[in-house]
Amino acid sequence: MTRIELTVNGEQRSAEVEPRLLLVHYLRETCGLRAANVGCDTTSCGACTVLLNDVSVKSCTVLAVQAAGMSVTTAEGLAPDGELHPVAAAFRQNHGLQCGFCTPGMVMAAVSLLAENPHPTEEEVREGLEGNFCRCTGYHNIVASVLDAADVLDPGGTRAAGVSA
């Protein structure tokens, strides 16, 4: 067992963990944060996406011990007071979710994408979400949600291919 200390959604946490414990299982079972889901075995689907030190990672392919000393943000952490985060709000506004299983991971991937590229083109959004699978929406409304969120987050910005923050 290994002792880890880390920050989860702004809260300092400490735990004794088996080295092989995956971050996603630490979040779900130890912290009770079950928004991130496991959708595959092969780092393909992105349903488990969370932010690790503010960038998107697949928490099924990060050991909890690797996150020691770092800061983790899950979908729950985007809405500390129950208010929808602007990206989440855009998903609702644009019907960017159906069954909801991919949604927390998709939203976290979108948050990370917009932090790196605040005004992506449609093509950049699609490429930026290539690591997140959705079976319900055909991606149409997810892409619309992310483009909409970009406008909401930074209304004055302009969209230009290849330009990033």
Partner: peptide, 9 residues
Amino acid sequence: VGDPQIRHR
């Protein structure tokens, strides 16, 4: 390489 999440790690 891979996708954004994979490139982050």
